[in-house]
Structure formats: C-alpha cells, structure tokens
Design a binder for these strands. Sequence first.
DNA 1: GCGTAACCTGTTTTT
DNA 2: CAGGTTACGC
Length: 750
Amino acid sequence: MDYLEHLNEPQREGVINTEGPCMIIAGAGSGKTRVLTMRIAHLIQSKNVDPFNILALTFTNKAAKEMRDRIEGVVGTEARNLWMGTFHSIFARILRTEADKLGYPSNFTIYDTDDSKSLIKNIVKEMGLDDKVYKPNGVLNRISGAKNRLISWQEYLRNPIYKADDESAMKPELGNIYRTYVDRCFKASAMDFDDLLFNTNVLFRDHPDTLNKYQQRFQYVLVDEFQDTNISQYLITKKIAAVRQNICVVGDDAQSIYAFRGADIQNILNFEKDYADLRIIKLEQNYRSTQNIVNAANSVINKNRAQLKKNVWTSNDIGDQIELLKATSDNEEGKLVASSIFEEKMHHQLTNNDFAVLYRTNSQSRAIEEALRRMSIKYKIIGGLSFYQRKEIKDILAYLRFVINQNDEQALRRIINLPKRGIGTATVDKLVVAAYDHELSLWDVISNIGQFIGGRSANAITQFATMIKAFKVETERKDAFEASSYIAKNSGLLRELYEDKTIEGLSRYENVQELLNAIKEFVVNPENEDKSLGAFLQEVALITSVDESDKDNMDAVTLMTIHMAKGLEFKNVYVVGMEEDLFPSQMMLSSRADLEEERRLFYVAITRAKRRLYLSYALNRYRFGRLKTCEPSRFLEDVDPEYIKVNKLSRSRDLQVSTNSNLGYTKNFINSVKQPVNQPTRKIHRPSADFVPSDISKLAEGMKVEHAKFGFGVVTRMDIQGANKKAKVNFENHGEKTLLLSFAKLKILS
DNA sequence: GCGTAACCTGTTTTT
DNA sequence: CAGGTTACGC
C-alpha cells in the first residue's frame, strides 16, 4: 500500500476509513479527487470489494471518465466494472432496466431542455393561455423546481401555498400545466432531465424489492461534488445506502454554485443530522495555489454567513499579488488580457495551456476571442453551444429518435415537415385534433391517415409514414452507424445540406458527417456491447458540452464560464468582467442567499489559479446591443487589499466600435449584402490607424484591399469589380467567394 | 404552404 | 444584438 505514503493525515483517513457514513469537507485544491480515487482503489485492492458493488456519482461524465482512468492505473482493468457516472446517466441506465415497473417502455426518450420548452409552449397554446404570461422558460423552471423537491403534480395542485403563490403571480394555471406536461411526457414515452431523478425516487418508493436489489448491489456509495446535489439526488443516495450505511460524500460548501438548478446547500450543512455516527474529515491544506491566492480567497469567502468552519492554508510560497486590470471598454479589456498573456508567456516561458480566461456569461467570450485572434494566440472555448445542440445535429437526432420511439411527439413535430414536404402547421393542427378526438397517438393517426383527413397533405403524410416504417426495418437489421447513415441519406436531410453551398451550409454538412463519425466510433468501440441505434441514442442524450473533450491536448488558452471551471486549475487565471450587475449578476441581487452564491462563484474563480491571478473590469460594455457604463464589482472590495495591487491602467484612447465581428453570417450582414446598390463610389486612402470600421460603399472599382475582416472571416485579398457591387474576396479559411458587398461594413486590420 | 420583411424581446450559470 | 414570431403577398 505504498500509495498511502504520499498522503497527508486527513487524506489518509479519508482513504482508509471505508466503513460507515463519512463526509469529507475538501477545501479548494486540497487533493479531493486523489482521495476519492485512492479510496475506491483501496476498497478494491485491500478490502477485496468487487467494483460491481461500488457506486460512484460524479458531476460530469468527464469527471467520471477521468476518475475511472486513474483508478484503472492503480487496480487495472477491473475498474471498468465500477458503477461510475453522473446521477443522470447512472439512473437513466437503471430506469431503462426497470422501466416496465413505471409503465414506461425501456426505449424511452430523454427530452432535453429544448424539447421540454417546446412541449410547454404547445400545451400553453392548446390550453388557450397567454404565452406572454406563461413563458416556457418560467413554467419549466417552476416544474423543474417542484420535481427537484419531489413534489408531484398531484401534491402541487393540492398544496394551498403553491396555489396562493401562483394566483398572486397571476399564473393560476401553473398546476394544470404541470399536470398536462407530465401526462404528455408519459404518453410520448419520454422523461426530461428531472424525471430521471424524480422517477428513480418513485421507483424506489413504490417497489421495495427493486430498492432492495440495488441496496444489495451497491455496498459502497460515493458522491463527489456533494454541495451541488439537490434534494431528489440526495434522497436517492440516502435510500440506496440505508441498509449498509457505507456512504461517503465529498464536497465543499464554499463551492456550491448550482442552486439555480435545484442544488441545496442544506444537504451538506445538515448531513450530520441524518447520520448519528458520521465521521467528518476536513481536508484543509491547499496544494494548488500560492499563499497570496489562498489568503485572498479566504478573505472573500469569509464575508459569507452560511458556511462550515474550516481553515484552508498552504505551505506553498507567498507568490505574487493579484493584479487588477482596468479597461475603458470590453474590447480594450480583451486587448489587455491578450497582451498580458503574451508578455507572461515571454517572461516566464509558459505555454497557452497555462492560461485560462474565466467569465460570468458566455457572451463575454466574444471580445476576448477577438483580441486573442488578433495576437495570434490559440484559444479554445469550453461550453457554450454544444455540438449536439446545433440545429442540423438535432434534426438528424430527431429522425433517429422518432424511428426508435414513435411516441416521441417533440421529435415528430421537428421532422414531419423537414425537409419541406408540404405538411404545414394547419395540417399538423388537424393531426393533433384528430389524435385528441379519437384518443390515439399522433403516430396512430399518421399511419392510418386515410381514415382521418384527405386532400393534398394526406398524400404527403402517407409518404412520410412509409418512409419512417422503412427506416424502422433498417434499424432492426443494422447497427447504429449503418442505420443512421441510411436515414440521413434517405430522409433527404443530407442532400438538402449538401446542396446548400454557403459557408454555413458547408459547415452544417460537415457537422452531420462528424455526427456520423461519432456514431461509427460508438459502433467500433469494443466497450459498447449493444451497437444498436437505441443504445447510441441513450448515450448521446446525456452528453454535454463539457464532455466533448477532443480539444484536451491542444496547446491553447482556455476560455470558459466560471461554472465550467469547477474542478480545474491553471497556472495563470484571468477573471474578466468584474463589474457590478454582471458579476454579481443583477438577477442575483435580490436576496442574501443569492448574493452569497455569487460570492462563492467568485471564490471558485479565484481558487482555480495556481501561480498568478488577474482580475479585470471595463468601464463600458456592450450588453443587449447597447453600450452601457459599468462600475467595478462590489466583490473587488471583498478581497483584502493586502493581496491585491492595481497594476495596469488602460492606455487606450477612444472607444472602438466594431460591427459584423462574429464568425458566421450575421443577419445584418446578409441583409446588407442582399440590397441592390446605387451608391456613388469614392476613393479612400489606405487607413493608417489600428483599424477603422469602413463602409464598403467607399471602395472604388479596381481597388485592392488586404488584411480586412468580414462577418465571416479574415480577408487576405479583395478585388473590387464593377461599380461597387461585386468583389472577389479571398478568405483565409473559406477560399475565394464572389460577393455583393453594398452596405456591408468591414474592418481593415493593421 | 412557403418565403420574406418587419416587429418583438430577452438580458446567467447547465445535468 | 440576434433569434424567434407574425403578417402578408404569392
């Protein structure tokens, strides 16, 4: 057991005390993951526990995979038999095997947030309610909140408090929407994210024999990131561990940042009350950061009232002070960060991988990206729009989903007229009415359409039904890759994308090919026994943007939200946008609890840094298309001044405004390109400034432009032809295109 | 049914 | 700003 030698005393305790309930409070950077992996390795190696009897719940699929790999390094391939994954993926798996007990088929669909929202939208419309009052987002939040607290629609309707609440909010129908929503999900053989947990609770509540089966199987239960579990998740673990009481939770109340998703910090604060003989272990030594960073972080978190007592310290060197960067605008902030990264790289021989830029909201990445690109610093963005959330991918997946489960209403609505086959909204409405009148499913109506409606669209529907039936036959015979290739081709989706020769059309086509590659990989992977399309869909439903980690080994600066940064560390960290209303977010200013959660988020951001930390804010920022003046965040005052210095003041002069700065076509750009032009041409001088936004109409025939930038990329050369209408444009990444330019703006880069 | 243009509106984080 | 929705002409 030589691995125990490298652990400090509390860490060792956390590893070897495997029996009975245990809570490990692990301060930031205290080697939590190490303890957890060693504990599991210890169980397998020294206590001879079969990996099959260990349940380890993590926060992301990626964390599970990493931990499994590390355990495999210690105990070997045996580790593959561990039950390790997110709450959602583990219990989705269990629900599939036990589905019949809840009246679900085992091939049930998992609705993502978009599916849920559009279903709610349909329901609100069908109930004849005002969708301005019952906004899908708000309604879903309400339903989700209820499910996370294990409140069924029956209880919701019965509870006078909710009723009064909803009535005073002028939304008395919320309970009825909840009821209809649950009913429709059930009829669609679908579960949303919250149902995966809610229904697991129902399963264990109503089927003691099933609960007992899993209690026997999971002799050891471990929960990582315990501070971010909600009540529903907590009760599941509590039930499973009820017999053997071998439950170990690991977390840090100071890093609880998911209350908006139902996470309840009380789970960790009250854990002691549930287990009388609880062993509490505190990991307080930080191995990650300099003293300055640890102390600064402590000075911030101590402003919070709700917390467990602990004393995080480090024996690392003192390190540099935190630097505060101040910029005049968001673009200036980007420049400051980019040039700081450039300098740091030079002075300290660092690689791009040593840097991370963290922000509160995804939209903040734009200015940073632009600045990094200009300085030719490679970067990667983690999070944001996931590959699987792209429209073209969701379209294909909707086909696949529907072929597997014909009850899947949301998938059907998505594909029934895609590509266009003459089945418009009016026809779909008729279908819905017919299904409702005869108490049939939409698919029943569609596959026997002749009995319900006639006319032109009936023909199109028959063709659609025939096609789906053919796809079904294919999937039964073939593996996931062959089946999905067949469907992509024969649905007409692939052809439609192929025929779209615009730059985005091209990338959409490539994305679909990419999806097919992923399915191929799934089929080829020997770890996957079931190679059917159904098995693939089951896996894909719970993939999130963090899990798409093919960017892992490239040398690039990491850009992400602070939420995504949980559990990661970097030598140098920049926290940008330290402005009041942005961070803390204006939505979180209403209650003390919310403000404290924002402060914990700030704490998480600070503690990601190993060596150097920069905080920055801008005095002006574009938000919702408007330029706003900003004030420094109140959180800056929470940092003890001893640990911070104001280092760089922006030297910048004017605010520089850019248009068409995104990659990809912007709507305004497309509109401007489309317009016919009759503008007089004028000569312009080659600009000497850093860059100037320039009107295309100022460009004259025969003029050449170099190093300019358009809506969709960097221009290497541009020849203006004819009276200002056409230009041959050579793009860095997209080759040559002939475009109508008219009113479009471009930026001339220096 | 479909395509277009004008209008409207959200404005946090994500399993 | 950008994405979604609606009204309208074909």
